[in-house]
Simulated assay, not measured.
Amino acid sequence: MLAVAVMMLFDFAVVSIWSQAPGMTGATLFGYLGTIGVFLVLVAYGLTNVGAIWFFSPRWRLWSWQWVILLPAIVFLGYTLYSNIYPVPAPPYNVFPYVALAWLLLGLLCIVA
C-alpha cells in the first residue's frame, strides 16, 4: 500500500512538472509517457517469454507446441522494439528509449538493493 502511494505521488509530480513545459498539451504528454510505457511493456513481455522457457524447460513441462509460440513471440517483440529504436526517431522521441532504459536500471537497482 505504501509503495502504491509513493508511486502515485512520484507520477503526479512528473506529470505536474512536465505538463508545465511550453507548448505541452494533454495529448502530447500522453503520447510521450505512452511511448516510454510501450518500451517498458515490450521488454516486460519479452522477459516473460524468456522466463517461461527458463522455468518450464528443466522440468520437461514445455512441450514442442509451446516452443512454437514462445520463440516467435520473443522474435516479434524484439523486432518491434528494434524497429521503434532504429532508425533513430525524430526528437524528442529519440530520447525516450534511454529514459525507459534508465527506468529499467533503476528498477533493477531497487531489486538488487
Rank of each mutant, 00 (worst) to 15 (best):
L101C: 10
G78P: 07
I53A: 04
S16G: 11
P72L: 09
M24L: 01
L70G: 00
Y32A: 03
P58Y: 08
G31S: 11
V41K: 05
Y82N: 08
N94L: 06
N84T: 09
Q20P: 00
L2I: 04
P91R: 10
F30W: 11
V38D: 08
V4K: 01
S16A: 14
P58D: 11
V88G: 02
I74H: 03
I17G: 06
S57T: 15
V43N: 06
I17V: 15
S83A: 15
R59L: 14
Y32F: 07
F12H: 07
L40M: 11
S16N: 10
V6D: 05
V95G: 00
S16D: 09
G78Q: 11
F56I: 00
F12C: 05
A90R: 14
W18D: 08
F96E: 12
I69S: 03
N94H: 13
G37C: 04
A100N: 08
A5V: 04
L81C: 03
A102I: 09
P22W: 00
G46N: 12
G31A: 10
I111D: 01
A52V: 04
L104N: 03
V6C: 05
P91Y: 13
T28E: 09
A13S: 02
L29T: 01
R61E: 13
P58G: 12
I69K: 05
S19R: 13
T25V: 02
V14N: 05
S64R: 15
P87C: 12
T28D: 09
Q20T: 12
A13E: 00
A13P: 00
A113S: 05
I36L: 10
S83R: 13
V41F: 09
T48P: 00
T25I: 03
T35W: 11
P87F: 09
Y86C: 09
W103Y: 15
A27V: 13
I85C: 10
D11V: 03
V43Y: 11
G34M: 07
V75N: 06
I17E: 07
R61C: 06
M7L: 08
G34H: 06
N94F: 05
S19F: 12
A13T: 06
V95T: 00
L33F: 01
W65Y: 15
V68I: 14
A113F: 07
V50I: 11
A44Q: 05
A52W: 00
G107W: 08
G37T: 08
A44M: 10
Y86T: 13
G37Y: 03
I53S: 02
P22V: 00
A44D: 13
T25F: 06
L70Y: 06
G37W: 03
I53V: 12
W103C: 09
V75I: 15
L42G: 07
G37S: 14
G46T: 05
W67V: 02
